[in-house]
Design a protein around this nucleic acid. Structure first.
Lengths: 348, 348
DNA sequence: TTGTAGGCGTTATCAA
DNA sequence: TTGATAACGCCTACAA
């Protein structure tokens, strides 16, 4: 039977063994003050010998700084959230922050007390709200409340005065995809949208609609079907569209998964892609390049959204430190990019 | 210009305002000791009024418990890690643990000091090592070292004495998929494997190989091509297999993404699936049901792996608390399940 | 160059 | 039923 004798070594332990005061050890650890090379070496070696690690809790108690950030997110199994998180983590690491997480099982949670309290109790220096905006799940943001919280940055939501926001320009992404289909000569362009109570879905919808309006093309409600982001949903929506408008000659799906589902239906029915129907997606998930046919889609900067949000949060934290005064930064909208593949232009 | 006057309220603040001692407030907060209903109410109301939140750092300093776990993981953008994490988070939440993260940019990191030190400095109660086993990235586990760490549980790695391990039974999953293809009468069954320095890939490979041996079928090296888990890699591997063995009549791909890539090649070459070639994958990602044709695959219990690991970690933590003595638990192997779809049996 | 006293916010112990 | 005191591990301010 193995046994663990995992014990924490304290500053005192080191001091005792090295025959100096605790403060001297502290100086060595933090590289501060003038210390004779002799004692410095002696202390350092007993630190190594004992495997001493400073207790950050105790340090934070004094410094009033934890160097930790709280991240609220949801649906990590999806492409968007996980890639955004990767950016958050990377930037946090570079800036020396540890991350504390709260993963919401349901992104529409509106009772935020149980979410934020653990962060506040753990005295995070700042908070990143990376939950997609859905329905009324921003209703908790009341005037006066945010000021009572640690510095906080919001991701993927509509512009709102007084808040620091980082988001993808979903609307212009939707417009890019749609305009591409228009440019190819398509005249009846359907939309498989995400759930319309998602801000991201409604923005992509707006991009589609406004582009068709601008081009004097049909954009009636008949051409829009609401999916649930899943491939299975895309499957269902594609059938529905074909049912409603047999003359449809292109479809913009609001994410690549739903586009995949649409492709499946078309194969099953023997339609040619893109000769009969052109397809475009959104996200540029790695698999989309290997769909059959490879999928035209919209790439966006999820990783950057994550890292930018940390940078901004740091500014807020530092600013607060300096002046006890903290003004939200201007909203940041990250641009998108059209990736053209065979599902819209065929093989050449 | 909005300004934040975010300040922390302390036990003392509450005590002063309520006209009691700090200890009394502490008693109210922790529901401990006998307190007159009268003062309890008075204290509680000033707590609410001031919005007091206990400082967990200070609490942990005396209790020697942080109720937090450190999670080391990698590749959250992939299906496996993100779903495992979901299970970890859920179970942690249920048991009252907060989560501290370390996301490795490269899963083959072998210098663990910079990874573990922040956890130890933050005094996590336990650690979950959820990085897949790759090459020598377990080399840091030296006898005697683990005993000097907080309680720790490892995910997805080979059995090793003295360690607490939770893993998916990848080998029997690979065997299930392969046997299914054999049962369908296939005689030349290729394998698109993941990178062979991944433990998970080599286990699935073993499942494939042993099944073919048992059935007296060809399992020569010619039938194995090494991919990189990606759809693009699956694409390349499928071409290679067709090149080497034109008579191939089935392929087991070690994950669904590579299976997707394989499907793309077959479509491009006009092969019929499954009449000419049957395909099976591994993971059962949601999209796989919407591949064309829908993909036969292996489902595994990633979420459960995550939640089990937290349960076990808790046992270790409690056990340690009780006896200062901590014995690793028996390894846990989670079973897999065959999901049969059209890519192997066609549409009936 | 080094050490001492005091305090960060909380809880345990012991007394009142 | 309540409160004073001492600790948890560290850092700042001030002395020596």
């Amino acid at each position: 039977m193995r046994s663990s004798n995992y014990q924490h070594v304290t500053l005192q332990d080191v001091a005792r063994l090295a025959g100096v005061s605790a403060k001297t050890v502290s100086r060595v650890v933090n590289h501060q003050g003038e210390i004779s090379e002799d004692t410095r070496k002696r202390v350092q070696s007993t630190i190594d010998q004992l495997g001493y690690r400073p207790n950050i809790l105790a340090r934070s108690l004094v410094s009033q700084r934890t160097n930790s950030l709280g991240v609220v997110t949801s649906g990590l199994e999806y492409y968007g959230p996980s890639h955004t998180l990767a950016g958050i983590e990377q930037q946090s690491y570079d800036l020396g922050y540890s991350l504390l997480f709260s993963l919401l099982p349901k992104p529409d949670a509106n009772n935020i007390a149980p979410i934020l309290d653990p962060f506040i109790s753990r005295r995070v220096d700042g908070i990143i709200w990376a939950v997609p905006e859905i329905g009324q799940n921003r209703a908790w943001i009341q005037p006066g409340l945010v000021e009572k919280l640690p510095p906080i940055v919001f991701l993927s939501m509509a512009e709102r005065p007084g808040l620091s926001i980082v988001a993808i320009d979903n609307k212009s992404g939707g417009a890019q995809a749609t305009q591409h289909l228009v440019d190819l000569g398509r005249r009846c362009i359907g939309l498989i949208t995400g759930p319309m109570d998602w801000w991201e879905a409604s923005e992509r919808f707006s991009g589609w609609k406004e582009t068709l309006q601008r081009n004097n093309l049909d954009h009636s409600a008949l051409l829009t079907v609401e999916g649930d982001w899943s491939a299975a949903g895309g499957n269902r929506c594609m059938r529905e569209l074909l049912d409603r408008r047999p003359d449809i000659d292109a479809v913009f799906a609001s994410n690549d998964q739903m586009a995949l589902g649409a492709l499946g239906v078309l194969h099953q029915l023997g339609r040619r892609i893109p000769e009969d129907i052109a397809i475009a997606g959104f996200d540029n998930i790695p698999e989309s390049a290997c769909f059959w046919p490879p999928l035209t889609t919209i790439q966006h900067q999820l990783f950057d959204a994550g890292s930018r949000s940390v940078q901004i949060l740091q500014q807020l934290i530092e600013g607060k430190q300096a002046t006890r005064n903290l003004a939200p930064t201007d909203p940041i909208l990250l641009s998108t990019k059209l990736i053209i593949r065979a599902s819209s232009v065929g093989f050449s």
